[in-house]
Design a protein around this nucleic acid. Structure first.
Lengths: 331, 331
DNA sequence: TTGTAAGCGTTATCAC
DNA sequence: GTGATAACGCTTACAA
């Protein structure tokens, strides 16, 4: 491997000069500049980022710690993070935790050991509650799930409001016997439930059935199936992420119910399939790309300016009304 | 930050001994072992991986270079790669190239600069044709797309056969006027087309309409729309990845055609929505998780044993027959 | 403006 | 078995 020494030798200068040229440092004559660049070219020299990182104690890699890259929400976020990081000359470590707090801690440690510039993290509920006790030796941006910790920037959507609006929409369209499937892994599910309960209460209604479950299609299917079996009067189901929504869709079909005539369905996250099925599905669309992009920008700002006071950005989910929650027909 | 020096000091030994203990090297008395581990514990010492990498010239990070993480095929692969790497103590760099060969080259360079242990790579067609001229300073496993290069391991599915089987299935079910939308970005589309043409030829048929297009839903929609508009006689469409299949589905719906009565649809890749829609979609399901897992295993084996002769693994896609290609009714 | 040399935190090669 | 010490490839005082 060709090193800075080889370049220096060929250019007839010191390694310091080579370093200066390559880092666009001032105080170097055009003449030297030229000689160095020539040698670099000729030798096909590329600086070793590991050595640079070790010496300068700063890297241009950020960590991205998410629960499951296959969850479309996180897939989109990952894409946005990679995009944005790339634009600014950063690259990204992908860490998948499977909602496992031990794996989260392990990856948090790893990120430190790898000396990353910063981390974008979406913690499990378990980790979230004791978040402030975590040692964080790098700038951290928390996405999607809120924590009480003034060391970190956060980027969230207003989950209570989202749950509220979705539920209100159902009620306004004539649904009265509403069941709901919430994700159990994060704080998000709880918050969405708050909005759900609040909307019901305001209309003098109570939930027919509420379940917390793992954010998986199968779990959503099982939960919604049980719900339908036990509560024949249910006329609408609300699910709080795309996987649970898919599971609920399957369950409703499996019970030979029509959507929305027998049971309406509303969910979260705009995915490929929400407009492919018939009827298409009413959802709160989260601005996933924007969340990922903003998170990355916040992180990079903070890396550049470590003492900046941390800020929280709250984005709004957008209610997209579709056929799966069409106004209830008189029966 | 606490370093190996601090540990050595506290344990009253040399840094060499600390290093030996932490790397499970032989020739160290249990007594020393204990003292070192105690100090490590007390100080909360964690070895700096960057320094270790620089000195030992080996890292436990691998690069994953894919076109688009949002393509479910790559999403699943990424998940599998991360899973498998994690099990073996490796972590992964996520690189998204957007089918852009310049970005591919840039990331390939970056992987070298970061001194990764190896790379899993799914090259564009453009990069694939001149693959053997790429400087590869690390073990490389090519996935999904074939290249002519005896330096690399490859893991593929038999695309010609897959295209052939899918087409034969359509023909056997009575479809005669078949159009197809192929991905233009990779070698994969071409191979699948071969199988497609071959199956048609064997039955004395010719394709009604063939398009190459970018692997995006919108592009698939546009291509299938044009196809339907220009060829009223079309009775089936074949699409060669999940995004194009989704686009084609939309186009067929948009043209107010019924599936499969007016137009049948067959595609690639098992995704969430293929069983959510009505009718569910006939596809060649690729063993994505297994592909990612196998790729990672091949890579790690090669890292452990660099001179092993490269091998190619060919997996088979599985034809899953569903309602979208049900036997054509007499009309 | 340029060069010399220390040092980032490890591991590896020697002696002992 | 253990400890000095050089070295990995770079950046950065400091000196010239």
């Amino acid at each position: 491997m060709v090193s800075i020494k080889d370049v220096a030798e060929m250019a007839g200068v010191s390694t310091a000069t080579v370093s200066r040229v390559l880092s666009d440092k001032p105080h170097v004559r055009p003449e030297m500049q030229r000689r160095v660049m020539n040698a670099v070219e000729k030798l096909g020299y590329r600086p070793n980022l590991i050595a640079r990182n070790l010496r300068s104690q700063q890297s241009s890699t950020i960590g991205l710690i998410v629960a499951d890259i296959r969850n479309p929400f996180f897939t989109d976020i990952s894409r946005a993070v990679e995009d944005t990081a790339y634009e600014k000359g950063f690259s990204v470590y992908l860490c998948n935790t499977d909602e496992n707090s031990a794996k989260e801690k392990m990856y948090l440690n790893l990120m430190q050991d790898e000396n990353v510039a910063g981390v974008i993290f979406s913690p499990t509920r378990e980790t979230a509650v004791s978040f402030s006790t975590l040692p964080l030796n790098f700038p951290t941006v928390v996405v999607d799930r809120s924590v009480r910790d003034d060391r970190v920037d956060m980027i969230l959507i207003d989950n209570v409001s989202a749950g509220y609006r979705l539920t209100t929409h159902l009620i306004e369209n004539g649904y009265r016997h509403i069941g709901a499937v919430f994700g159990e892994a994060s704080t998000t599910g709880r918050e969405r439930r708050q909005g759900f309960e609040q909307a019901l209460a305001e209309h003098g209604l109570a939930p027919v059935h509420v379940t917390y479950t793992a954010p998986k299609i199968e779990a959503g299917f099982a939960a919604a199936s049980a719900m339908l079996a036990e509560n024949p009067q249910i006329d609408a189901i609300l699910a709080t992420n795309s996987l649970l929504t898919a599971g609920a869709w399957k369950a409703i079909m499996h019970h030979n119910c029509r959507i929305p005539d027998d049971v309406a369905l509303v969910g979260f996250d705009e995915t490929t399939w929400t407009t492919l099925v018939n009827p298409p599905v009413t959802v709160i669309a989260q601005p996933t790309y924007e969340i990922g992009k903003t998170a990355t920008e916040l992180l990079l700002q903070r890396i550049a300016e470590p003492n900046r006071s941390p800020r929280s950005v709250i984005l709004n989910g957008k209610l997209i009304v579709r056929g799966s929650s069409a106004p209830r027909r008189a029966s």
